[in-house]
Design a protein around this nucleic acid. Structure first.
Length: 104
DNA sequence: CACCTGACGCGTA
DNA sequence: TTACGCGCCAGGT
């Protein structure tokens, strides 16, 4: 674990509960974790996850449904691929929250 | 200590 | 839905 943070486990347990084929926003994850003002921390924690992790980090997008993770030099985005791979339609780097938002 | 940087959110327009 | 401003907070310099 590269980062020293006691809040990370709380965030990760919530992310782990996002259903297959659904997405949640950073803010939603923070609220469900009991950390209302830490939306940015969610992004921070997910960004520093090691590849060996089984956490479905790709199911987390911003409050508008837009994907803000960095794209590769070839313009390809891993999160886009992973979401599409599980049946979620991604158009213009964005998912339709009306269809895929995780209703808790 | 001061500043800067982010996988952010909300109210308003 | 987007655009802007402002609030928020962990980390890095």
């Amino acid at each position: 674990m590269p980062i020293h943070n006691e809040l990370a486990p709380l965030i990760l347990t919530v992310v782990a509960q996002i259903p297959y084929g659904k997405v949640a926003s950073y803010g939603q994850v923070a609220r469900l974790a009991g950390l209302a003002k830490h939306a940015r921390l969610v992004g921070y924690v997910l960004k520093h996850l090691d590849a060996s992790s089984e956490i479905p980090w790709h199911r987390v997008v911003n409050h508008s449904g837009k994907i803000r993770t960095q794209s590769s030099a070839q313009g390809q985005n891993l999160q886009c691929e992973l979401l599409t791979q599980e049946g979620i339609v991604v158009e213009n780097n964005r998912v339709n929250l009306k269809h895929y938002a995780w209703q808790f």
